[in-house]
């Protein structure tokens, strides 16, 4: 960690030219996100204005519209289902990424510490499940889910997302276990630790940062997933990306302000998770490279 701490000084040494260059590149990458956030605060006419407006009077109407819909027939505005969709996204992604992390960690430990004949083949096979594009497997999965009654249920989509996240978890967590010094585990055994303790008290605490990083990456992937969610969730279990798509079309066309407001709200949870785990994340992604 000492080396990470000393890094700002090195960046300072790189000079203003380099700093300006990286700032411009970052801005180019971040610009679409910035534009969406700005659009979320615009009125409908500002959002569609040509040329685009950078300065405008902000409004919170779009955010209100996410949760309350003006109704032609009823007097008062109606509450939308978006709170449920947000809950669904958090619950489904959180549960499945967490489950995949537990299963993936156990499998990764096995692969890393108990090498068997054909391990490389198994690892490869696990990865192949991610090689097919979702669109190829979606129809058989949809049929299976309908047959077993899993379609539209929480457990159905959680099961699928867990499976979807396991290969990634296994590979990443295995690389963290591979980095550890096995003599530490042997020392623990000689100190009287059984295999369970070696795993829980020695190996796991050493890779916590890596587990946090794996969790965040899994969250980001799952959070944004659209096609499986579109076909396999029902009215009660719909996630935000699907609900977002459903706001498009209809009698008033695409309401860009509304969409931008949903996206802005949708960014918040993943931003919070990443922010909380940022230190772990940095250590996780640099695992092995900054180790002495």
């Amino acid at each position: 960690m000492a080396r990470i701490g000393s890094r700002p000084r090195e960046i300072g040494k790189a000079g203003w030219g380099w700093t300006a260059f990286t700032s411009v590149v970052s801005l180019i990458y971040f610009f679409p996100v910035l534009w969406i956030i700005l659009t979320a605060f615009k009125t409908r006419s500002d959002a569609l204005a040509v040329p685009p407006k950078f300065f405008f009077t902000p409004t919170l109407q779009n955010f209100t519209n996410v949760f309350f819909r003006e109704s032609i027939t009823a007097q008062a505005a109606q509450a939308t289902e978006f709170p449920l969709y947000f809950f669904n996204s958090i619950f489904i992604a959180g549960t499945s990424v967490f489950l995949a992390l537990i299963l993936g960690t156990l499998a990764a430990y096995g692969f890393s510490r108990y090498p068997l004949r054909g391990n490389d083949t198994y690892l490869f096979v696990i990865l192949t499940t991610r090689m097919l594009p979702p669109i190829v497997v979606i129809i058989p999965i949809f049929l299976m889910f309908r047959l077993t009654g899993l379609a539209g249920s929480y457990w159905g989509i959680i099961l699928l997302y867990t499976a979807f996240n396991i290969p990634f978890s296994v590979w990443l967590v295995k690389s963290f276990f591979d980095e550890l010094n096995p003599e530490i585990e042997d020392a623990a055994r000689m100190d009287g630790a059984g295999e369970k303790r070696v795993f829980f008290a020695m190996c796991l605490p050493q890779i916590l940062a890596g587990l946090a990083a794996t969790f965040v990456f899994g969250m980001i992937l799952t959070w944004n997933e659209f096609i499986f969610a579109l076909l396999l969730t029902g009215v009660e279990t719909r996630t935000v990306p699907v609900a977002m798509a459903r706001t498009m079309g209809g009698e008033i066309g695409v309401d860009y302000g509304l969409l931008a407001a949903i996206v802005t709200l949708f960014l918040i949870p993943i931003f919070v998770v990443t922010y909380i785990l940022q230190n772990q994340l940095l250590r996780g992604v640099t695992f092995g490279t900054v180790k002495k």
Partner: peptide, 12 residues
């Protein structure tokens, strides 16, 4: 008891 070449101290 054993003293390992890498010392194998428990880092956490």
């Amino acid at each position: 008891a054993m003293i390992f070449q890498t010392f194998a101290l428990y880092p956490h």
